[in-house]
Amino acid sequence: MKELDLLKKDWKKTENSFEQISETEIYKMIHKKSSSIVKWIFIISIIEFVVLNAIGFLLPDDTIHQLGWLENLIQVLNFLSYGLALFFMFLFYKNYKTISTTSTTKKLMESIIKTRKTVQYYIYSILATGLLAGIFVGFYLIRKAFIENNQSVMITFFESLVLFIFIAIILGLVWLFYRIIYGFLLKRLQKNYEELSKIDL
């Protein structure tokens, strides 16, 4: 291609046309903070881990004490979720460490996407255990209200509504994080990854 050869000629000629950055300026630059997407993924993932665990702490303790035999099950689920958090945090850290700018472009993209997915799976697993606990507690409460206490339908309905709103808020938060990350951080990376994968098809 004639034009490309022309460009190559010009490319070489203009090699020295860039305003040169001094050593002092480079010193200053390397002490500045990076704004790379990896850093942001790291920060946001940590926030996600913290927020999800904080929600666990905020759950009202007194309802758990009224659950009789279910109490033990909830405790088990609770321990399970801490175990899950630790396990995923370990995976996350391990994946994060493998992100290296010196690997190939494709590998680098893959490791970033993998790191991000770890947190996503963590969110899913927390939602799943939460849902499981919610279903158990819900059934238990409704059964208790109707059979043992002869509670009115209104109050049962109201209680279910509160539970529903609580779950909706959590889901909303998760959705928000998801949007933030995919909207602002990973959209371009995903597009470039697809583009690069297409070449090797």
């Binding site: 704004s35 790379s36 997407i37 700018t101 010196t102 472009t105 970033i112 371009r188 470039n192």
Partner: peptide
């Protein structure tokens, strides 16, 4: 050679257009 790789990776993968 090493710088090419890191620099290109940054431009394609890590950099967020401000």
């Amino acid at each position: 050679t090493w710088a090419y790789r890191v620099a290109l990776n940054t431009a394609i993968t890590l950099y967020r257009k401000s």
